[in-house]
């Protein structure tokens, strides 16, 4: 289980790095607005929040019983 968590965490960090860096970053680095909020700011806030939610899920939520059973076998 721990190993599983390790792998999940490594994948998560790679996804986060990709989301926050070139080239995905350039999609949002434009002088556009959503409402009155600059697009770039909005993107960073949402992506960051998503990243935090994924961190909570990956470290706090236990895999369902079914999955765990699958692991045990």
């Amino acid at each position: 289980m721990v190993n599983n968590r390790k792998q999940k965490n490594i994948i998560l960090s790679i996804i986060m790095l990709l989301a926050f860096c070139y080239p995905i970053f350039t999609i949002f680095n434009k002088p556009k607005f959503v409402g009155n909020i600059p697009l770039l700011y909005l993107y960073v806030v949402i992506a960051w929040l998503l990243a935090i939610i994924l961190l909570v899920v990956s470290s706090e939520i236990k895999p369902s019983k079914k999955l765990q059973k699958g692991k045990d076998e």
């Binding site: 390790k6 965490n9 490594i10 960090s13 926050f20 960051w48």
Partner: peptide, 11 residues
């Protein structure tokens, strides 16, 4: 943001 990404690598 860097530390947030690093947090995923804490484990």
């Amino acid at each position: 943001i860097g530390p947030t990404i690093m947090a995923a690598l804490f484990f």
